[in-house]
């Protein structure tokens, strides 16, 4: 990357993503936490754009910001019987200590390592992604589709009401 633009964008995106992630933890209202989570997802989509992975950025927005966040919002809104607060816990102090220690370890290790960087333009087009998914990575791709089917079957079984099951038993 050259020029001040990408560097500036990187730091701005980092600030947005991290502050939003912190907001998820700190905000007491569950709805606010979800909104912060969405902001954090958008920040990550920005990182993908910065790395010239446009397709990933779009997928991030469509799947995480679009589908998953909306699902979480619906889940919160449709379960009025449970509390909307983010839950107090006795473990705040140890958790804080642990995360600071972990962050220190990670920052040390990441600085200690010389990372390989790719020199040529790593632009991932939709075409190359598609070829990779149905070529070299076809096995994990197909396993993932079986996984989704199994998850779907399981989800249906878990949410069926007793009445529906009684009908099923008579059939």
């Amino acid at each position: 990357m050259d020029g001040a633009g990408p560097t500036l964008a990187f730091w701005a995106l980092s600030a947005v993503t991290l502050v939003a992630a912190g907001g998820v933890l700190v905000s007491r209202n569950l709805l606010h936490a979800v909104l912060f989570l969405i902001l954090s997802f958008v920040g990550i989509a920005g990182f993908f754009l910065l790395l010239s992975a446009e397709f990933l950025a779009m997928a991030q927005v469509v799947i995480y910001v679009g589908a998953i966040a909306v699902l979480v919002l619906f889940a919160v809104l449709l379960t009025p019987a449970v509390g909307r607060d983010n839950g107090e816990t006795r473990f705040i102090a140890p958790a804080l200590l642990l995360s600071v220690a972990l962050a220190a370890v990670f920052i040390f290790v990441i600085h200690d390592t010389t990372w390989n960087t790719v020199d040529e333009d790593p632009r991932a087009t939709v075409e190359s992604l598609g070829t990779a998914l149905l070529g070299r990575w076809v096995l994990p791709f197909e396993i993932a589709s079986v996984l989704l089917t199994a998850a779907l079957v399981g989800a249906i079984m878990l949410v069926r009401s007793p009445e529906e099951e009684a009908e099923d038993g008579l059939a």
């Binding site: 994990p140 396993i143 996984l147 998850a151 989800a155």
Partner: peptide, 23 residues
């Protein structure tokens, strides 16, 4: 013998188990 396949296979074995545990 590949981390991506390992991860997806791990989930394929785990997610049915989560559901079965709550059966």
């Amino acid at each position: 013998r590949d981390l991506i396949t390992i991860y997806v296979a791990l989930e394929l074995s785990s997610i049915p188990q989560y559901i079965l545990a709550g059966w």
